[in-house]
């Protein structure tokens, strides 16, 4: 788990498993906080690497979201487009503690595409 300041953005039960909710950041990229069917929580920038589709509105299956615009499949863990598609959306280190969701502040303010070698941080509810 990376070190730094963590932002408390709300409780896990505010997100229905298998869906996402948006998190606008003033002056920065809007984020999408996902909770998978199995209860893991991931945060990525709410912008498809293809044509900026709002990923928060896609269908979540496993640890993947299908973009609502042209159905690219994006890994919630790495932000990477799966299959033949190529592209990557920044992921935000996320952890769940005591039923609350925390995002790494620095990454919220400066979202970065995860290093290919890094396994993206994830959190279980």
């Amino acid at each position: 788990m990376p070190v730094g300041k963590w932002l408390d953005v709300g409780t896990v039960d505010q997100i229905e498993p298998g869906t996402a909710r948006t998190l606008p950041v003033e002056g920065r990229e809007e984020l999408a906080v996902f909770r998978t069917m199995r209860g893991e929580v991931f945060t990525i920038v709410n912008k498809c690497p293809h044509k900026q589709g709002p990923l928060s509105q896609g269908i979540v299956h496993g640890n993947v979201v299908a973009c609502p615009l042209h159905n690219w499949n994006i890994s919630l863990e790495t932000g990477r487009a799966l299959g033949d598609d190529d592209g990557c959306v920044p992921t935000i280190p996320t952890k769940v503690e005591g039923g609350r969701i925390f995002l790494l502040r620095e990454a919220v303010l400066n979202p970065q595409v995860a290093d290919a070698a890094d396994e993206a941080p994830k959190a279980a509810a």
Binding site: V9, E16, L23, P24, V25, E26
Partner: peptide, 11 residues
């Protein structure tokens, strides 16, 4: 919940 944000962050 489908129409509202989880929260908003103002740096």
């Amino acid at each position: 919940d489908l129409h509202s944000h989880l929260a908003e962050v103002r740096p």
